[in-house]
């Protein structure tokens, strides 16, 4: 464990709870952006279909 991640006898607990938080935050961002990207793609496809017909 690098020195900046040493928190006395509670190192494991502190590091694991902060890392878990970061993971959840990142997953939130990624999933929200993916969802929006998918919706935009679908909407574009729908628009293109309409133009052709």
């Amino acid at each position: 464990m690098p020195e900046f991640l040493e928190f006395g006898k509670h190192t494991t607990y502190v590091v694991s709870s902060f890392s878990l938080t970061l993971v959840v935050l990142i997953l939130n961002v990624v999933s929200a952006r993916l969802r929006l990207a998918t919706r935009i793609k679908r909407a574009r496809q729908r628009l293109a279909l309409e133009e052709n017909s």
Binding site: F7, G8, K9, H10, T11, Y13, V14, S17, F18, L20, T21
Partner: peptide, 15 residues
Amino acid sequence: TDYQQLDGFRIIYVH
């Protein structure tokens, strides 16, 4: 650090 929980109390910042 906290007088009782030492560095363990830092979990409060995410909890």
